[in-house]
Nucleic acid binder design. Structure first.
Length: 209
DNA sequence: CCCTGATTCGC
DNA sequence: GCGAATCAGG
């Protein structure tokens, strides 16, 4: 395969739309992500000029799990290669299962072997994230609801580096667990929860300040 | 381990 | 110019 005008155009288009090199490579076909990246550089468009260029504003949870995520903080003097945070990711949302039946907690419960985490919750705990219909994109919220139905429901101790750490339920009760679905690249949460946790600031009131 | 883009360098 | 291999990082 060679870089025909069409293919280059598509490359440029997708790149500027924020698609990843691997995604673009897949779309183009016949090339690897390396090829795409190489081309991108040769074309001199390593910097993605997109309409939406902004910081992300975390809008959610302070999970019981310590989260070192330090967001925002616009750098005063920024070089080109400085702030290259990931941009908004395309949201395919191929969630096909509108399961009508309530899939609560049907299965056998032989999980908790030694103890039963329960009553040890100091009263005045900071309210758990619980993504209430705050100012969250209804679509993303709907997706989250779906996802949560299929959550792994992991306990704190079962969490790993690549399980979604989004808390679900009330920590003060027995039905509390963590999402546990596979996280996406470095993020602490799965795709769905990331989309709820990190919103483009453009989504809401644009305080001109 | 998964993924991301960046760079190098033989072709 | 091309892109695999490698590097650097989340």
């Amino acid at each position: 395969m060679s870089w025909t005008d069409e293919r280059v155009d598509l490359l440029k288009k997708m790149w500027n739309e924020g698609h990843s090199a691997s995604t673009i490579a897949k779309e183009l076909g016949g090339v690897t992500r390396n090829a795409v990246i190489g081309k991108v550089h040769r074309l001199g468009l390593s910097n993605r000029n997109g309409p939406e260029t902004a910081a992300e504003a975390p809008a959610a949870p302070q999970a019981p799990v310590p989260e070192p995520e330090a967001p925002g903080t616009a750098a005063p003097v920024v070089d080109l290669a400085q702030v290259k945070a990931e941009r908004a990711k395309p949201k395919p949302a191929p969630e096909p299962a509108p399961e009508p039946a309530e899939t609560a907690a049907p299965v056998e419960e032989e999980a908790a072997p030694t103890y039963t985490p329960k009553p040890i919750i100091p009263a005045g705990q900071p309210l758990p994230p619980q993504p209430s219909a705050n100012e969250i994109d209804p679509e993303a919220l709907a997706t989250v609801r779906e996802v949560e139905k299929t959550a792994m429901k992991l306990s704190l101790l079962e969490l790993t580096e690549r399980t979604c750490k989004w808390p679900i339920g009330d920590p003060a009760t027995s039905d509390f667990w963590f999402c546990g679905l596979p996280v996406k690249a470095g993020k602490p949460y799965c795709e769905a929860h990331v989309s709820v946790a990190f919103q483009p600031m453009s989504t809401r009131r644009d305080r001109k300040r």
